[in-house]
Amino acid sequence: MAMDNVTVETLVDWLARFDSAVTEQRDYLTELDSAIGDADHGANMARGMTAVMESIGAVHPGTVGELLKTVGMTLVSSVGGASGPLYGTFFLRMGIASGSVTELAAPDLERALRAGLEGVVQRGKAELGDKTMYDTFFPALEAYAAAVAAGSDAGPAIEAAARAAEEGRDATGPMIARKGRASYLGERSIGHLDPGATSAAMLLSTLAIAIAR
């Protein structure tokens, strides 16, 4: 076993950290969503991740594929709104791409993240600059892939991805929303961070922390 491989245990730790992050930041995410959406992103994500931790506790998934598919299905059935299908699809596709392995090497994690992101794009049909979670995910994946191509292990690569995710999130501030309910605000959406881009940055930063441990 390579030292830097990402195990099922690490992924469960990641999900627990993401659960804590969205629960702690619940009001902040809702506040972002009140400005340009329908004020339910914090509550929906917190409810969804609480349900995820309960499912994992009940199922005890043994493989990466089983774990991530459980996460995806739980999010899809507990979140509602637009975030449920988008985050749900992200994890489902990651799980399908990973299959029944018990750990992921750096290139395997890249393949899984890419499959997840492709699912999000297919589902949400967002393009770069639409002020969505894609504006966080895309640069993060690029940074991860570049680091892996340069020979990095998963740890440093995901740290680069988390930094790129935060820059991507911050870049949604000046954008005009072109997807979801925020799009009805047109130019009035300028100056607000996108809530989905913000929770997506938390997803990557918690993964970086979990892998670094």
Binding site: V76, G80, G81, A82, G84, P85, L86, G88, T89, R123, G124, K179, G180, R181
Partner: peptide
């Protein structure tokens, strides 16, 4: 509505 469309699509 985005949420309705995505959930029904799935």
């Amino acid at each position: 509505y985005t949420g309705d469309v995505l959930n029904f699509e799935m």
